[in-house]
Simulated scan of single mutants.
Amino acid sequence: MGRWAVATERRRGEALIRAIHEAVLAEVVDAGLGQLTMEGIARRAATAKTVLYRRWATPFELLIDALGEAYPVEVPTPAADNLRTDLIAALTLLTDWMVTPAATAVMAITSERGRYPELAEALWDKVFDPRGGTFTTTVLRWYAARGRLDPARLTPITTQIGEALVFKLAIDNARTPSAEEVAAIVDEALLPALGL
């Protein structure tokens, strides 16, 4: 009797939401955006489709919610006293995230932006922009706000350099950049571009 109760225990609250979020990301990886359905997500999450519709109107709305939860947030050092270390940490967070199902889903959305423009817009409006944009932008703004970095140096180019080079190396080498390569991006490109 005890084993039966454990086996059939229904997930609720955060455990259920987490399972649904994991399911939608796995569905995108396996089936792609064009085949993403509430039926497939519910089946993978081992829950009823009606459970999904109580909270999300469409599979894309659910996907954006899952990506918002899965997107990592940089936490610069409170004292803002080691920009190099914080930038390396931010880009390392990016390289770690790049091998997750969430990153695969983001790549699917960005690569099919022309086919799903509203989904891409929601990705920026509800996931990227609320977190400050790129992985290094949060760090750079933190330092600028504390007088440790000239705010005029935070241009659309300098705030993209770190991420752009991480993705370039990943594409060229078919792997995420190593710790040494991440440090080189900071030392040889990002810090010089910031005048440091």
Rank of each mutant, 00 (worst) to 15 (best):
G2W: 07
W4E: 07
W4R: 10
V6Y: 08
E9I: 01
R11E: 14
G13W: 09
A15R: 15
I17A: 13
I17V: 12
I17M: 11
A19E: 05
H21I: 10
H21R: 10
E22F: 04
A23D: 07
V24P: 15
V28N: 07
V28R: 01
G32K: 08
G32D: 13
L33R: 08
T37N: 08
M38R: 01
M38Y: 06
M38H: 08
A46R: 12
T47V: 00
L52K: 05
Y53L: 10
R54F: 05
R55H: 06
A57T: 12
T58L: 00
T58R: 04
T58H: 01
E61T: 08
L62C: 12
L63C: 05
L63K: 06
D65E: 12
L67Q: 03
E69S: 13
A70H: 01
Y71S: 05
V73I: 07
E74M: 15
P76M: 03
T77S: 14
P78N: 15
A79E: 15
A79N: 12
N82S: 04
N82T: 02
N82Q: 04
L83H: 06
L87I: 05
L87V: 00
I88S: 06
I88H: 09
A90C: 04
L93Q: 10
D96S: 11
W97D: 15
V99M: 09
T100M: 03
P101E: 00
A103K: 03
I109G: 00
T110R: 14
T110W: 11
E112P: 13
R113N: 11
G114N: 14
G114L: 05
Y116F: 13
Y116K: 03
L119K: 08
A120V: 07
A120L: 11
A122H: 03
W124M: 13
D125C: 04
D125W: 01
F128D: 03
G132Y: 01
G133N: 00
T134Q: 15
T136M: 11
T137K: 05
T138I: 04
V139E: 07
W142N: 08
W142T: 08
W142A: 07
A145Q: 14
R146C: 06
G147F: 02
P151Q: 11
P156W: 05
P156V: 08
I157P: 05
T158F: 08
T158D: 12
A164H: 10
A164L: 02
V166A: 12
F167T: 06
K168D: 14
A170M: 08
A170K: 06
A174H: 15
A174Q: 12
A174D: 14
R175H: 04
P177S: 02
A179Q: 12
A179R: 05
A179H: 09
E180T: 07
E181Q: 07
E181V: 03
V182N: 02
I185F: 02
E188V: 12
L190W: 08
L194Q: 09
L196N: 03
